[in-house]
Amino acid sequence: MAWLRSIFSRLRARLRGWARKRQGPDSGDITLNSGRIYILPNTQGIAFGFLLLAMLIGGLNYNNSLGLALAFLLAGLAVVTMHHCHRNLSRLRLRLGATGSAFAGHPAQFSVTLINDARAARFGLTLRQQSTSECIHLEPGEHQALSLTVNTSRRGWQSIDRFTVFSTFPLGLFHCWAWIHPDWRVLVYPRPAPPGLEPPAVETDTAGSADRRHGDADFSGLRNFRDGDSPRHIAWKAFARDESLVVRQYTGADVTTHVFDYDSLDQMTGEARISQLTRWILDADQRGHAYGLRLPEQVIGADLGPIHRERCLRALALL
């Protein structure tokens, strides 16, 4: 069986390579034309075929007209089903969506919107890469986004060179599919080290108090919430009172600032250092501390916020 399986897998790889070369890369909106839709009976379809064969032989042998008629009806049903199954994908439009990002070891999500421009409903549409997405029906004119999750193991760029959209509806006898070769790549951030090691000594902005217990002394007033404000500065009491989001303002930049240095972790291996730096960045971001990053060939100044965080993680991912 092993040799058979190896032949099959080699054959499949050849077929996929051929399909890829023929179809070219996909991006943006893709309409599945019948040239790139494939259909074959699946295991259940083969079992159904054997059932038909048994009925046919029995019906011919016993000259049982009704048995034969049922065998022919079911054979016709299989043929009809094949066309209905093919129609689920024919002229289906896919819109490749944004790619997310993920930490190594966590799944990355890709979004694909399936759009049905046709007047007939499409049934049982499913995406598959390493795992299978939800299975949906699309009414005429309807569209729905499905997400594909892909496992990540190493930091850096990870690309998805192929995913499958398929349907086995209506009777689950045929597997009808199309291969999509998206121009997707996702940046996989390093795996954060387990928490434990505290970041090195802190440089505190002297303009404000490092001690939150005395923070009130620096409280200077309230202002309306703006995008990017830390949730911990929101005046929740005020929100509870009159449902307006306001943030407390402090005089001085009451911010703790770290500088994380790659070279300071010289007792660790390279990957471990990167993991540790990632952990620190996440923790600092969580606590609302400012941080900078000093890498062998790159220095990122201390700053705050999601864009800064992204920049640091990206630098670590691609190190």
């Binding site: 259940q44 029906h137 509806f169 689950g172």
Partner: peptide, 9 residues
């Protein structure tokens, strides 16, 4: 068979 055999809801 239709309701059962395919993964569709």
């Amino acid at each position: 068979l239709m309701q059962t055999a395919s993964a569709a809801p």
